[in-house]
Design a protein around this nucleic acid. Structure first.
Lengths: 193, 193
DNA sequence: TTATTTTTGTATCGATTAATACAAAATAGA
DNA sequence: TCTATTTTGTATTAATCGATACAAAAATAA
């Protein structure tokens, strides 16, 4: 390809933008914030992201989505997916303070975008539903091989778990400490059995 | 008192501002939005709310807080407070679509303000903790008179219920319909027993 | 009526917003 | 080398942001 070569790495740019959006949301993160966070000038920025701020935000969401996808791929090879999911929830409790305060960028986006941008809100909802489908799959699996005795419909238990996730990501900001959260998480997981 | 009399009613102004903030959050609700929603001119606005947009937002939060306080007062005279709380949760499922999409203005504020405004974030967290304390009180009450057999510490069950609230207010935007939510809510309430 | 006080409406402020214009820089292919 | 193509850096845009200035309007107290 002919022309001046790019000096910026797309994935690194997206990760830095993602971090900025994660903390302050879409509206409160200014273009200046993004240029400072990524080190780009506005020339490169609008050359790379022709759709402007919204395109960057969408790409940042999709980069975050990849992390969930990778977890899902990992689950497929696990001897006990439901236990991995339970471990994932239990590990939330021991995260550091800033991680608690940030919550989940996808849930945050649902909250912020509902009355602001239909496309971005739907994108976030879709990702949450993908995570929910992963929960449902793991529960169904565990019910079939007898690991989980609970006979409740796996779809309902999956919906329960995504709601636990959504709830924790707000409650962990009320109590950003391990002690308060671990009892809570264990109580919530006890529903699955 | 001497001087030109006010033409605006404070409570009505706050309710209209609250509705605007509830849908779009603090940052995305412009002063123009607020002036249109309330019908005030900027002269009256800054004369009434010397602290500007932030003071108005804080007052709107406090007006919402009053609704929770009134529910609490009502609970004190109830023969079975915990059943009233369960009914409250069950009634969420039958709300209309827009009510689902709006979620809880207090939870929304925690999400938005964490890295933007310490005072407003703390204000919102405090209100959520007040609601949590109400849950805890009702559970303790019910455990003492035998209505609730579950021996789990009331503080933990209260923390559980506020997390259910936080989670529902995101999940109801994923599934803004009665059928999906009522099964979910019943499952979550089954933990209390 | 007059003086005093407060609210209201309008015009406007400087700052910040997201986004563009455009030339210089840096490469690849001819 | 020369030309075509792309990226980069800087200057600048129009629009909107939250907030203020200030005089007219409207009341009360003297």
């Amino acid at each position: 390809m002919r022309g001046r070569p790019t000096t910026f790495n797309q994935d690194q740019i997206l990760e830095k933008a993602q971090r900025a959006f994660w903390e302050k949301g879409f509206a409160a993160t200014s273009l200046d914030d993004l240029l400072n966070a990524t080190g780009m000038g506005s020339g490169s920025f609008y050359n790379t992201f022709k759709g402007g701020k919204k395109e960057l935000f969408s790409k940042a969401l999709q980069q975050r989505r990849q992390v969930f996808q990778e977890f899902k791929t990992q689950l497929k090879t696990s001897p006990s997916p439901i236990d991995d999911i339970k471990d994932f929830f239990r590990s939330i409790a021991t995260a550091d303070r800033d991680t608690h305060l940030r919550g989940c960028i996808i849930s945050n986006t649902v909250v912020e975008m509902t009355f602001l941008d239909d496309a971005l809100e739907k994108e976030a909802v879709t990702i949450l539903k993908e995570v929910e489908a992963m929960f449902t799959w793991a529960i169904k699996q565990a019910q079939e091989n007898g690991t989980v005795k609970n006979k409740t419909a796996p779809e309902l238990l999956g919906r329960y778990l995504i709601t636990v996730w959504n709830g924790l990501n707000i409650s962990r900001r009320m109590y950003p400490n391990t002690k308060a959260l671990s009892d809570l998480i264990n109580l919530q997981l006890s529903v699955i059995g």
